[in-house]
Amino acid sequence: MTGDLRCDSCQGGIPPELWNQQQGALCPYCGKRSWTRVFPAIQHTVAGQSPEAIGSESESSCFFHPRSRAIVACDSCGRFICGLCDLDTGSTGGHICPTCFTSPKAPGSGTLLDKRRVLYDSILLGLNLGGFFFFFWPSLITAPLSIVLAIWYWRKPRSIVPRYTTFRFVLVIVLGLLQTAIWIALFWSVANSPGRGSRGPAL
């Protein structure tokens, strides 16, 4: 694929003369304008590293390939790994072995390597507001439930990008308390209504 830049419209090749033009360039085949920003990586062919064989008994071997020389220790589990097993994830997670890379709960593999996160704050906000606006009465259950769950999930892993997660959790708790207060006031007013207990005028 190296050097293979194609027009997204007609799949015709974009020649290097048209790369990195500030105003873009017209495709020589379909005439559509396209803008390309090309970087030095296009000139490199990245090949996977081959493992080196162990030279002597004193050398450390790869955990997964005992005949290959270890070059680095996994930053997550500490296993010695060879050039073939080393997955360099940069500053995201460092050098990781394939097992830790695929393990969802690898200790220290970095939550930064996560591929998926659950947004508990959004779920609880939906639960709270949904219960309140969907005929109101479900909030009798959803309001206290959302408070409990907000506290329960407070320390769970959150989105890895900046987001108003804390604000949403606080909002869920405040709304839950307000709704609970409304229900308490309703029960109290019903319990203390003037007509309660009187069964007609005493004779």
Binding site: W35, T36, R37, R116, L119, S159
Partner: peptide, 29 residues
Amino acid sequence: HLLVVRSMRFTEEYRRFHLRDIQAITATE
């Protein structure tokens, strides 16, 4: 790295592209 965050309301999925691996970015009208 460049991070593509795909949110499905209640979950998020992440795709990472290391800057050293990016060969080109193109836009076609």
